[in-house]
Design a protein around this nucleic acid. Structure first.
Lengths: 151, 151
DNA sequence: ATTAATAATTTGTAATTCGCAAGTATTGTC
DNA sequence: GACAATACTTGCGAATTACAAATTATTAAT
C-alpha cells in the first residue's frame, strides 16, 4: 500500500486539471486567462466579497490581484462597489456580462467533464465523484499545505 | 445526478492541487518554481527525452521551454547531451543534484499526501486512490481537452 | 555532390505577470 | 486630535511568456 506512487498520480492529475481549466477559458467566444476564470468563479461564489478576501482565497499577492481586478473592470466583467459601512473596502461583483462569461465557462467545463464521465458506468461515476468530494474535504481540513485562510 | 456541480468541485480541487504542488517546491532547502518541479519530474519519468518532447508533454511553448532548461542547467539540476544519431536533438537528464531535489520534492509531497490520507480509513483511501487513477486514465483517453501529444 | 526542404533548438524582442516597497485613504484607539 | 492599523493602489524592477527570425543539423531531390 505504501509503495503507491502518490506523487506521480497527483502530478499528472494536477497537470490535466490545469489543461482542462485552461481549455475552458479559450473556447467559444471566450478569451480570458486561467487566473481570470478563477477570479470570476470566486466572486460569483462568495457573498459580497472584498478584494482582499478573493485575493487570499486564491493565494495571490494583493497588489497583483488589485491589477487583475482593474483589467476585469476594463473588460466589463467585474464591478467594484464601495462598502457602505467601511469605505476602505471594495465589494466585488460580476456584471451582467461577467455572469454570462462565467456561465459559459461552467457550461463548457461541465460538457468536458460529462464527456469524460460518460466513459464510466453510473456506479463508477458516483464513486469517483464521492471520492473527489472526500479528498477535497480532507485537504481543506488538513490545512497543512493546500488551503488558504478563506478556503 | 445531473445536478451535481462538477465544475465547482474540479475548480476547487485544481486550486488545492496547485497549492499542494507549490508548497512542495518551497520547502526545506528547496527553492524552485512550480514549473521547474514539473520539468524535473518529467525528465526523470521519461526515457531519454528530447527538449521538444518534454515541452509538448507540459504544453509549454518550445522557446519558453528552451530558456527554462537553460536556467535549470545554470542551477546544475539538468544536463543536455547531444543525441548520437541525430545531433540536432538534445537529450535531457537530471544531474546528481537534480535527482536529489526531485527526490526531496517527492518525499515532501508524499508526506503531505499521507497526512491527508491519514484522516481516512484503509477502505476510503483505497477507493479514493483507485478513483483518481480511473479518472486520470479516462482523461488521457478522452483526448478532447486535457492531454497533450506526449501524455 | 549541391541545393532545397525540413526539423530541433536558440536568440531578439516585446508584452504580460508578478511581488516587494512605498504611497493614499479610511477607520479605530488612546 | 495624534497615531496606529487596515484596505487598497501605484512605482518599479525582475521573472515569465510567446511570436518571429536566426542557427545548426538532417534528410530529400535533382
Amino acid at each position: 500500500m505504501e509503495s503507491e506512487n502518490l506523487r506521480g498520480l497527483f502530478q499528472l492529475l494536477t497537470r490535466r486539471f490545469g489543461l482542462l481549466n485552461k481549455n475552458c477559458c479559450r473556447a467559444d467566444e471566450i478569451e480570458i486567462s486561467l487566473v481570470q476564470s478563477h477570479i470570476l468563479y470566486e466572486i460569483n461564489r462568495q457573498h459580497k466579497p472584498s478584494i482582499q478576501q478573493i485575493a487570499e482565497t486564491l493565494g495571490t499577492d494583493i497588489t497583483t490581484f488589485s491589477r487583475q481586478i482593474q483589467s476585469l473592470i476594463k473588460m466589463n466583467l467585474v464591478m467594484k462597489t464601495p462598502d457602505e459601512e467601511d469605505r476602505r473596502i471594495s465589494i466585488l461583483s460580476l456584471t451582467e456580462e461577467g455572469v454570462k462569461v462565467n456561465n459559459r465557462i461552467e457550461q463548457q467545463m461541465n460538457d468536458y467533464l460529462n464527456e469524460i464521465f460518460s466513459t464510466m458506468n453510473e456506479f463508477e461515476k458516483e464513486t469517483v465523484v464521492r471520492s473527489l468530494k472526500l479528498l477535497n474535504d480532507r485537504m481543506v481540513k488538513s490545512s497543512v499545505c493546500c488551503t488558504t485562510p478563506w478556503g
